[in-house]
């Protein structure tokens, strides 16, 4: 009767050793995570509760000013509290442009991914390759190229005037349109690639089963294709939405000095604004917004899956 107990002890011992080994092996990974993510995050939180230095940097005096000044500011003349309109405008612009960009990249990306994955097997790599060619060029250079397209004497305006559709150049530079256009172009591959991966895995026989069971093209798409490639769409949306929120180069070049986005606002605090605590608070806020948005997004999409 001792035997089972012994066996149990041996097993427990083995499990213990196993757990310890696994811990040991993950030490390097944990160190990297701490140094690269948790550490800077901690610095950021601490800085956001300090006072701005006179020229730049921080003074080691506790203050919640950075956090409160995100939403409200004191009028310089009559000392009353006012909403920080400029910040709210920038938040709103960042969020709405990011959503619009995500929707647009999805609208263009889904057909593109479908097109690529329905090419004969040997030809798909070629199209994927074409998709990635633009990313070989520096982002700034690509953004300036877009500027060449849409500025007042740019290609688009010149062509439209030449053809006679418009008489005067359209103002496209330094508008929200310019930012959305640029971000859609820049982030399109990030939408196409995960959707392509999902569509490629799609079993064509399921489509045949659909048509065999009297489905129209529309129903085949909404009832079978869409639910099955949803993980790809979710991944693509996250990959586009998150960097859009923090985008810096595109709004800077195409939006000009007036149409700032979140990323530019943060950069401003560390540069000309000389308000590191506010910059740190804004960065942290951006991260929290992204996290809440992601959790919400994953919640609703997995909810649907349960109902289906």
């Amino acid at each position: 009767m001792d035997l089972p107990e012994d066996a149990g002890q041996l097993e427990a011992e083995a499990v213990r050793r196993d757990t310890r080994d696994r811990w040991l092996m993950s030490v390097p990974a944990l160190m990297i995570i701490f140094l690269a993510a948790a550490g800077p995050l901690l610095v950021m939180v601490i800085y956001s509760f300090l006072t701005p230095g006179d020229y730049s940097g921080v003074k080691w005096e506790f203050s919640t000013n950075a956090w409160s000044s995100i939403l409200v500011q004191r009028d310089i003349f009559d000392d009353t509290l006012q909403w920080a309109d400029a910040h709210l405008t920038i938040f709103w612009r960042s969020v709405s442009l990011s959503i619009i960009t995500t929707v647009l990249t999805l609208a263009f990306g889904l057909p593109t991914a479908w097109f690529i994955s329905t090419r004969p097997p040997g030809k798909r790599e070629f199209w994927l390759f074409l998709m990635t060619v633009p990313s070989w060029t520096n982002l700034l250079v690509r953004t300036i190229a877009i500027q060449e397209l849409i500025r007042a004497e740019g290609v688009i305006n010149n062509v439209l005037i030449f053809v006679g559709i418009i008489d005067e150049p359209m103002q496209m530079m330094f508008t929200n349109f310019a930012i959305g256009f640029g971000m859609t172009y820049v982030y399109l591959p990030l939408m196409v690639l995960p959707i392509y991966a999902a569509v490629e895995k799609l079993d064509v026989r399921l489509l045949e089963a659909c048509y065999d069971l009297y489905a129209s093209r529309w129903h085949a798409f909404t009832r079978v294709i869409l639910p099955l490639i949803k993980p790809g769409i979710i991944a693509g949306s996250i990959l586009v939405f998150v960097p859009c929120l923090g985008a810096y180069v595109v709004p800077r070049v195409l939006g000009g000095g007036k149409n700032l986005m979140f990323g530019n606002l943060i950069e401003l605090q560390f540069g000309a604004g000389r308000n590191w605590p506010l910059g740190a608070a804004l960065s942290f806020l951006l991260m929290v917004i992204v996290m809440i948005a992601l959790i919400y997004y994953i919640r609703i999409t997995s909810q649907e899956r349960k109902d289906g």
Partner: peptide, 27 residues
């Protein structure tokens, strides 16, 4: 095919993986 009163039992079955047994039959 979607207008032929003909149905197929596929060699690989081709059941819809995101649906329950009953919903497959409902489709």
């Amino acid at each position: 095919p979607n207008r032929r009163p003909v149905n197929t039992v596929f060699q690989s079955y081709a059941l819809f993986p995101h649906m329950s047994v009953a919903n497959n039959i409902r489709f």
